[in-house]
Design a protein around this nucleic acid. Structure first.
Lengths: 221, 221
DNA sequence: GATACCATTTTGGGATACCAGACCGGTGTT
DNA sequence: AACACCGGTCTGGTATCCCAAAATGGTATC
């Protein structure tokens, strides 16, 4: 059995789900025992997760990357550049009917939907929207950005009002894309990303003490 | 001795310098012998180079990534997005004196300068310009893009006229940045990137037969 | 002569043994 | 009580072994 991908997947899942706290130390031996794999696949997983920014070298060893407010702000700028570029490409497409699939994705969330699902769909909206551009690099950039933002976004998903607002903005963006109005879509997406960032950073800065109490490392901006 | 980084560095250098042809098969054992390292650091190197796009899985084994025309075109779009975003940030800075350092870098190339140096400085121009934005993600995006483009750019550097043109465009961009004219700088950078891409893709498509004869895999757009 | 088949070799994936250096805790000294 | 020292333990880095699967090449058959 190829345990390599399994270790990587499981470890990523634990990190993204905050089952292992940001800033926590990791030893190859612990991972080895935890997932019943040997060091070769463990090391492969760590190397991959390092490039995703989920894990970092900590001196000689490893640790789960802390949540970094300065990094979140920089990612927002990066996201804005790549997502807007992807969006403009998509608006220029002759066939933009694929937005309906994304719209349907949004509709699949209602009051009975668990938090986890909202969290996932909220990210997938951006990822799938970027995929429509058919540009592999823009797509990957968005996907990787969302992975890096994923842990911090658990906070936003706890705020009912923020969630409703995000969904409304998502729908508005899709509407503009459907019409092929690149300028309007870009404007909406930009303000959505900037707004998200502001709410996220504010909320993280406020919760910082509480998060640290739970053992989560949160680095200031 | 930490041979891990050494293997990675040396292998990357051979690949970027076309000492190992695009599309060529690689075996872990060959690398092992070639660099006198054992398989663990070899695997680490391969995993890292894979994320850089220099090496790809080829069935069960590994091979040097072929030069892919479709990929080059997509990277150009991606580059345009991130480089322009970085440039706008830089233009908004109060202190833009760092452009002088980049200007000096360009000036360091004259008729006696070896091809290799022109090649490196041509890439470093874009990388260092992106670094000025002080956004780590935009910077990395540009750096990684240039790495991916590096091999294909060996062709452009053989064309004296193209080189002169590129340098002129580089200088014009710096001049606009120095004035803080973001719109003009963005316009110049965009057309520089688009122009580079067109010349590169055209020239590659023309040389494709010759490159293949040298054993270089070149995938069509 | 082409092709299907089988034995051998080779390959990457995984496991394990070993090492040098960092880290930690206790002890003895001041 | 504070601090310097020292020995054991733990960790990541490396080398090496083993294995299953895939590639290879030769051979017999049609």
């Amino acid at each position: 059995m190829s345990q390599m991908q399994s270790v990587e997947k499981q470890l990523r899942h634990m990190i993204l789900g905050l089952e292992i706290g940001p800033g926590e130390k990791l030893t190859e031996r612990w991972i080895e025992n935890r997932f019943g794999a040997s060091r070769t696949p463990v090391r492969a997983a760590l190397l991959r997760l390092e490039t995703e920014g989920l894990v970092s070298r900590d001196g000689r060893g490893w640790s789960v990357s802390p949540i970094n407010l300065a990094e979140l702000e920089q990612i927002a700028v990066y996201r804005e550049a790549v997502e807007v570029a992807a969006l403009r490409l998509t608006c220029a497409l002759a066939d933009r009917s694929a937005v309906d699939v994304i719209e349907a994705m949004l509709e699949s969330c209602d009051n009975d939907t668990p938090r986890e699902e909202w969290h996932r769909v909220g990210m997938d909206f951006h990822i799938e929207l970027a995929r429509l551009s058919a540009n592999e690099f823009l797509f990957r950039a968005v996907r990787d950005s969302m992975t890096r933002l994923s842990r911090a976004r658990w906070l936003e998903v706890r705020d009912e009002a923020a969630l409703a607002r995000a969904w409304a903005e998502h729908r508005a963006i899709l509407a503009a894309v459907r019409l092929g109005d690149a300028e309007e879509a870009a404007r909406l997406l930009t303000s959505h990303i900037v707004g998200s960032r502001d709410r996220l950073v504010t909320s993280l800065a406020n919760d910082r003490r509480g998060l640290r109490a739970r053992g989560f490392a949160v680095v200031a901006a």
